[in-house]
């Protein structure tokens, strides 16, 4: 199978270029396996990867124009030649490795931790199974970045728009019956940029390898804001 891989080494290249590799496909081969094969052919090829089972979120790449997690993408589903590029809109460090600093900053900016004003009970804070169910589809995010780096609004304003990942996380805490900082969280999200750059383009939903729906989460935040404002 033919792979076209984006290559860039800042020490020798002035701009990225595509390099062709031939990979022998085996049964059940994932894109990560193919990239590892490329690395066997050329040890100077760099990409991030670790767990190989879609939970660590290291190996997000752009494949034939769509952001995917390489380790859970069967090569049999891909159209040949397979074009593999780094995430769009992020500064390239080398080959498929991009600088995700702004993505992480946006995550940190939504105060992604549980805030509790009441004194802690001796045992667990009680939560009904129904309330716990509200976190399903939110807490499973693996911070791979597929969503935010496929979001045009994040491309245009990565320093000010939180992006789908961070907003999903924001809603994960707003939706948690144990969290007691709803007003502060909503106030923080006000203004034209942090939340309201989302134009429901829904690329994030298309690409999420965990099947999560950041657009819906963003909608929930807007509705809650509206409800609290009137």
């Amino acid at each position: 199978m033919k792979f076209l891989i984006s290559r860039f080494n800042p020490e020798t290249d002035s701009k990225p270029y595509m390099q062709a590799f031939e990979v022998e496909v085996t049964r059940g081969m994932m894109l990560r396996d193919a990239l590892l094969d490329v690395k066997r052919q050329d040890e100077s090829f760099a990409f991030r990867h670790s767990c190989g089972e879609g939970v660590c979120g290291s190996d997000g790449v752009n494949v034939n124009g769509v952001n995917k997690l390489a380790c859970v993408t069967p090569v049999s589903e891909l159209k040949e030649p397979v074009e593999v590029r780094p995430f769009p809109g992020r500064p390239i460090i080398r080959d498929l490795v991009v600088d995700m600093t702004q993505f992480y900053q946006q995550y940190k900016a939504v105060k992604p931790w549980l805030v509790r004003e009441d004194p802690m009970p001796e045992q667990e804070i009680l939560q009904s199974p129904e309330d716990r169910d509200k976190l399903d589809g939110l807490y499973e995010c693996i911070l791979c970045g597929c969503c935010s780096t496929s979001c045009p609004s994040f491309w245009w304003n990565p320093e000010k728009f939180h992006g789908p990942q961070a907003l999903l996380t924001a809603w994960r805490f707003l939706a948690d019956s144990r969290d007691q900082a709803t007003d502060e969280r909503l106030d923080e999200l006000e203004g034209p940029y942090k939340l309201f750059r989302c134009h429901t383009i829904m690329n994030c939903v298309e690409v999420c390898p965990k099947g999560l729906n950041p657009t819906q989460a963003i909608g929930h935040i807007k509705n809650l804001m509206l409800k609290n404002a009137v």
């Binding site: 006000e190 203004g191 309201f196 807007k222 804001m225 509206l226």
Partner: peptide
């Protein structure tokens, strides 16, 4: 106001 230009604009 700056504060209003998010939610208010969206609602309007």
């Amino acid at each position: 106001s700056r504060k209003a230009s998010g939610l208010k604009a969206w609602a309007i």
